[in-house]
């Protein structure tokens, strides 16, 4: 097999998923294939990867390993604007205690603790289900 057109990379397959996972993924690909030629290519790749474990191991090792951060999650390490290597230095402003929000909003002290936020209470999703009859 030509490692330059590696099926694990071409079809974005995870070699850790094993024959079952690979088969499921390739079935999906075959269903979505535009034509019979593409389906035949997918089938050939599926056979190559599932018939013999040694071939699958070889193809997997000759593919680039998956080193990209998964989509939908934070990439490690967190991106720091500016200097990428060191966390942002603390500044004097970071050490100053912030005033209470109620004071900033001109409310009486402790108002934000006493008053239950109405929008949460009215939210139907957060409300307990009504007892069934």
């Amino acid at each position: 097999m030509n490692g330059d057109d590696n099926p694990f990379e071409r079809y974005e397959l995870d070699p850790h998923e094993g024959p079952r996972g690979i088969t499921e993924r390739m079935r999906e690909l075959a269903e979505d294939a535009a034509d019979d030629a593409e389906r035949a290519r997918i089938r050939a790749a599926w056979e190559e990867l599932t018939v013999h474990v040694d071939r699958r191991v070889r193809a997997a090792l000759l593919a680039h390993p998956e080193s990209r951060a998964p989509l939908g999650a934070a990439p490690p390490p967190p991106r720091v604007p500016g200097d990428a290597l060191t966390p942002r230095d603390l500044e004097l402003a970071d050490l100053v205690g912030l005033p209470p929000i109620a004071e900033v909003l001109g409310l009486p002290a402790g108002a934000e603790d006493d008053d239950e936020p109405d929008f949460l209470a009215r939210d139907p999703i957060l409300s307990p289900p009504a007892p069934s009859r």
Partner: peptide
Amino acid sequence: APEPRPRAAGMIAAAAATPAGKAARD
């Protein structure tokens, strides 16, 4: 140059796993 597969670009992410590599990537 052959059209690289997206997974191949993981090489850059792997390089950035160390402080020196991350600086090089940036």
